[in-house]
């Protein structure tokens, strides 16, 4: 009975965290999967989102306001970064280096301004319900629900509107898109901004459940990148499924092994999957 409840707990935790992970990945999916820009700075956008949530909540007193403002600010930060790196964004190697520079700059700025000591934000919804003998915060459920709604909106935007059509047109054939009257540079700016805003939103959503540190972005980045590639570039629901599988597997392994060993095993599983599935759809270049 003890084991069963532990496994169920691991499952629930895996699914709620998995949906949040899917939201972070969706931003990278827009930037890397749809626009083909390798964005190493994605984790840092997420980190900035979390810090903004902490800052706005402690200064202005409303977490829900932070949830609205953080994506907006991070989105503009993304547009700025894309504007600066526009000349190299089609070159995979140079954009890895350039966005890695952005990562160092953002992480270093966070360290300079707020220091290395972790910041904590109390959950805006305090209640817990008891589950298998332990308290489970309602906030995690709410955060997962907000993520899911955002993902549905994103899917609608990309698959059912003109905006999404333009994104895919630009990815298919930039030259023909110009000929068809699409303002390609604008699409890149907005796409990058949208992706960054999604990272900012997920950072803000996660903020009350984790300790906020300058390194949190780099820690999550590799996982998010793996999910986007393993799920298939540009395919939102595949990535969602993969994010949930990833965190459920990790959650279940954590019930049996120590967290580090569980993470190692999960990484190895994903890596093997990635290497065996050779004919993955890739972006240009």
């Amino acid at each position: 009975m003890e084991l069963v409840s532990q496994i169920l707990f691991g499952l629930l935790n895996g699914v709620t965290w998995g949906i949040l992970l899917a939201l972070i990945s969706s931003g990278l999916n827009v930037i890397f999967g749809l626009l083909g820009i390798v964005n190493v700075a994605h984790g840092s956008f997420y980190m900035v989102g979390a810090y903004l949530a902490w800052l706005i909540t402690t200064q202005l007193g409303s977490f829900w306001l932070a949830l609205f403002l953080a994506p907006l600010i991070v989105g503009m930060l993304g547009i700025l970064a894309e504007f600066i790196l526009k000349p190299v964004e089609q070159n995979h190697t140079l954009s890895v280096l350039g966005t890695f520079g952005v990562t160092l700059a953002l992480q270093g700025s966070a360290l300079t301004i707020w220091g290395g000591a972790p910041k904590r934000l109390s959950a805006p919804v305090g209640w817990k319900f008891s589950l298998f003998g332990t308290g489970y915060s309602y906030y995690r459920i709410i955060a997962a629900a907000i993520s899911l709604i955002t993902l549905i909106c994103l899917w609608f935007l990309l698959e059912r509107t003109d905006v999404g059509l333009k994104f895919r047109a630009v990815q298919e054939d930039p030259e023909l898109s110009v000929a068809a009257g699409i303002r390609v540079p604008l699409v890149y700016s907005l796409g990058f901004g949208l992706g960054a805003a999604l990272a900012g939103l997920s950072g803000a959503l996660v903020a009350p459940t984790v300790s906020i540190t300058p390194e949190m972005g780099l820690r999550i980045f590799a996982i998010v990148f793996l999910i986007v590639i393993a799920g298939g570039l540009g395919r939102i629901w595949n990535a969602v499924l993969f994010a949930i599988v990833f965190s459920v597997v990790r959650g279940l392994l954590t019930t049996f092994f120590n967290p580090t060993a569980a993470l190692i095993a999960t990484f190895v599983l994903v890596l093997v999957f990635l290497l065996l599935r050779k004919n993955l759809p890739t972006s240009r270049g």
């Binding site: 790196l85 190299v88 140079l94 280096l97 952005v102 990562t103 160092l104 992480q107 270093g108």
Partner: peptide, 17 residues
Amino acid sequence: GVVYPVLVGLLLVGLVL
């Protein structure tokens, strides 16, 4: 020393461009 990573990051962006 604390601004060193920021400087390195900006330097990298400048170099790439």
